[in-house]
Design a protein around this nucleic acid. Structure first.
Lengths: 132, 132
DNA sequence: CTTGATCCTGTAGTTGCTACAGGAGTTATA
DNA sequence: TATAACTCCTGTAGCAACTACAGGATCAAG
């Protein structure tokens, strides 16, 4: 059993973040030493690493928690996992295409931006046009 | 001079959002009628529409405010506008490539996900591998 | 004169942290 | 043994950009 600082180092999850996860019920309350300090098992650290990977993949915390619970469940309900993951992939894809639309619009807006303009064409369009 | 509801309709910015912008100093405090209700001019509505377009393009509010102020400035400093816009384009591009990385990782993770697995390969990897 | 729409202020919730403040206990060095 | 430096504790507030009330005032229409 290790202290929170060591658990943070081993999992890559910040100390304040670990305490935040505990407050939010994403991880259960850990054991405590006699001096009231939190104590983490290897399994606890494993869960933190799991959660971190999920967050790095962009899953919301609620999904990350659900995935861990699926992973702890007896049958490892692969279908539920796939559903969560595919919904997430869909949202990632829609974000990508939205950002591409933005990139395109921004590139167009700045295309005519060059020093020496009396009126900035980008501001001009932002002020007046309706097709943005 | 129109009331806040009409300004909201004409600009596409929600009533609560308009009041939020005012609290945050993004827009100045508008005129008030004798009954204390806010009154907006055509110029005020124009500013709200401008801010909305900036937000739709993904600019943070602080940038949106700065762009409006540049647009109100005497010289319309096109270079400053371009700098803001290009920094924003860069951040949009980096978000896109990050999301593409995620999409790739997620697709790989779910590739072997099919009902009938005893152990879910995605959870397996999230629990054990280090290359995610 | 009542109903329903609109407006007002002020506060709290959202997501996922991060950063203190102010205090207590632990470890290493002189 | 004293003291400095570190780690930990609780609790609260801040970030971005809204959104959603609560509880009340005012207004327009029938």
């Amino acid at each position: 059993m290790i202290a929170i600082g060591e658990a943070s180092r081993q999992s890559g999850v910040g100390i304040e973040t670990i305490r935040y996860y505990e407050r939010e019920g994403i991880v259960p309350r850990p054991a405590r030493a006699l001096n009231n300090r939190r104590l983490y098992s290897a399994n606890d650290v494993g869960r933190l690493r799991f959660l971190k990977k999920c967050r790095d993949l962009g899953f919301p915390l609620s999904d990350a928690k659900a995935l861990w619970e699926l992973s702890e469940g007896s049958a490892e309900d692969c279908r539920s996992v796939k559903e969560l993951a595919e919904a997430h992939i869909a949202s990632v894809r829609s974000k990508i295409s939205e950002l591409r639309r933005l990139e395109h619009a921004l590139s167009e807006l700045t295309a005519n931006c060059d020093s020496g303009n009396v009126q900035c064409p980008m501001l001009q369009r932002l002020r007046t046009m309706d097709d943005i």
